[in-house]
Design a protein around this nucleic acid. Structure first.
Lengths: 235, 235, 235, 235
DNA sequence: CATGAATGAGGCTTCATTCAT
DNA sequence: GATGAATGAAGCCTCATTCAT
């Protein structure tokens, strides 16, 4: 997934690496950013040495976890954008607006936008993590080239979705992809804490309300100007 | 500020205690939840011994900080509610809807609700803190009787504001005080991170969009049922 | 002994500090430069925490040990120089060269030089240490201002002794204080390894032979030019 | 190079083994006695596994390195002794003292002694190594039969050189081969540290002074008795 | 009471050594 | 045989907490 000089990992090493990242993601989410490395190793069923062979220090592990999670999120958003494009190319879909489901009347682009923002379990955990790590670690995360690239590509994908939704008139024109990303990351963050059904509902409701706020029926002018993703780069 | 048995601390001791809490609040906000106790003591200009005399252990200090911050927030929300009640009792205010400021057309209760949710510096810190502490410490915070009481009183105050806004027709009827608290805490949380102007704007815009979503113009039924604050107690 | 802002240490702290340095000096000599910090602490009868409170890391401890040892050595060399000066001022001492002990016929300055080079137990340990530490640590030692100052003062003292001995004709004129320091440090180094009587003898003999070589009876011109202490600064 | 049961290693394995020893010798000299085994393996271009196949543990590698180095040194000292013997047997050499180079007036045996003590690069490394390893490792080195044998043979060679030089009157009679070995090892040790020109000069000068001290012009009786190599066995 | 010195458990990381591929 | 992945013991250092001054 990265462009590093890591041509091929031995099968078992690869499996270990993947399991460590998955375990670490979960452990960080469960116990906070300070979970002992030994605990992570234990949960992953490996010795500390193996953990450190793969990730030179805690920071490297965190970066890998975030990188992995963001890559998944990007793939998801892209899939949503692509399926939207495919649907648009297929005249059979939503052929006649008049006969369409009124609840889905917002249009294809809107649906694509909403789908792309449905946070995966992984992303939720990452949302939480990125806000919990120490300033030093956060800086390391932002400095990672692979993460930077993913963020940029994600921003581009989201930009396209936002513009399409605004073109079809379903998304209010005075918001930018930065606003959208910010709001949805907030919603996802709220979800990431409690793992139970209530949190699930609270998230769904919050998301619905936020989406209502994003629809093209502004009741009052928004302050400032539409935020682009770049505006939030320092987030 | 709290309802504890406060056996009349000597003036200077009292000052010490207050300074420690203020310092700790700032230190937690600046450097994260792991600031060493010695660092806090140093910043407060006292020895560790003094710190430990006031707060038997780190958890007690955290609890005190959160308690203090929540108490301030509650007082602020109450003041907003009270001024609303006072305004309602005063026929001179907003006497004639026709002459009222159109931008404020949502009604007095709506304004009161919005005001009560304008996060103070203190609240922002608290938002950040409560989401950053370890699960263990978070549990200790929730278990604190004084904090529980404050949360309950805060919920009651918010309930009243929500009901009033729904009664006047400005707040959509399918939300509860839990939804409102959840959404606004999310917005405030987003703010608490970066202290720069961009974050300020992002927060203002996010809040505006959320408020639009909360207004009484539901475009689609919300999933589930209106959340009460109790629903979110485990958050 | 240093010019740091350490005005006064609490009596017990001071005692601990001294004991730690003494213990560390011995431990380094006995077990090499890698003695675990915990071992040093244990031998000194304190907890690791105390050790680290006084010396932020291993390097700081090493620097302190070397500094302490060099200071002792400097004091010793100075005492030798001073007693020589005092003797010279006292007409009763060695009043008549003709009646002096033939074995001591070399003169007062020579005796002073020899005395100043009688390595203390501490210095022997230090000799061994400075050559055993890692390049990084060695660099830290050389970078220490207090150590730099002591080395400079020591060089000045030795310079005076060397010049005096050459003036009285007992020390061969084609050597410098750098040569003298180098040779004697070699002898002392050899001594520092084995702690038994044999080593003691070997050292005494080696020193006697070296001193013979240093006497004013050069049988062959020495290569290069007389070394000054500065020439050996990188040693 | 050693007298072990060397069951005819395959050519490439043999090459591996030699490269590992050479690499390790250099690595120890460059980076100190704590170079990780993996680093040595990497520098030698083999995997750790291969390293451990040849040398069961770190101690075995160190012993092999020292053994190798000492064997080289012994060969050199023997060559010097042999050439001296050959020269002595050849009446053409130094036939007429009157026509001899005055600077070489000390005699053939003296020259042989001096030559045998001219430290090779290998010996310098060994000097450094043997003094840097931990007490435990140093003991293992001394306990190695091959090393013991080499030391013994070296002592015998040196004994012969010393006796010859004393017989011809160039070496003072009150020193033993132990004294000579001790002094020259000290000089060589001093050299092994800094690899620059200053160190070269300092070594040359120190050696010259020491040789002056060793010449047959004792100005004072030496303490103790002439040391044999055995006296220094524990060094 | 205030201070800051002492303690030691606990987390991070390294590396000698073993073992599966 | 060669390789390098896995293991875990051991050392460094931090910091919450206790206690002597």
């Amino acid at each position: 997934m990265t462009a590093e000089a890591r041509p091929r990992l031995r099968a078992d090493a690869r499996r270990n690496r993947d399991r460590i990242i998955a375990t670490a993601t979960q452990a960080f989410a469960d116990d906070g950013p300070d979970v002992p490395m030994e605990e992570i190793a234990r949960l992953a069923g490996v010795g500390v040495g193996t953990l450190y062979r793969r990730f030179p220090d805690r920071e490297a592990l965190v970066v890998a976890v975030v990188r992995d999670s963001l890559a998944t999120t990007l793939a998801r958003a892209r899939a949503a954008a692509d399926s939207d494009a495919a649907a648009a190319a297929d005249p059979a879909t939503k052929a006649d607006p008049a006969t369409a489901d009124p609840a889905a009347a917002e249009g294809r682009a809107w649906d694509a936008l909403v789908n792309s923002l449905n946070p995966s379990h992984e992303l939720r955990l990452t949302m939480r993590l990125t806000s919990l790590f120490s300033p030093t670690t956060a800086a390391a995360v932002r400095a990672d080239p692979a993460i930077t690239r993913i963020r940029r590509e994600y921003a581009e994908t989201l930009d396209a979705l936002v513009l399409a939704a605004q073109a079809e008139g379903s998304l209010r024109p005075d918001v930018g992809s930065g606003d959208v990303a910010h709001l949805l990351s907030l919603a996802a963050y709220g979800l990431s804490r409690a793992p139970d059904a209530t949190a699930e509902i609270a998230f769904d409701r919050a998301r619905a309300i936020i989406l209502d706020g994003l629809r093209a029926h502004p009741t009052a002018p928004l302050p400032g100007h539409p935020l682009t993703t770049t505006d939030l780069a320092s987030e």
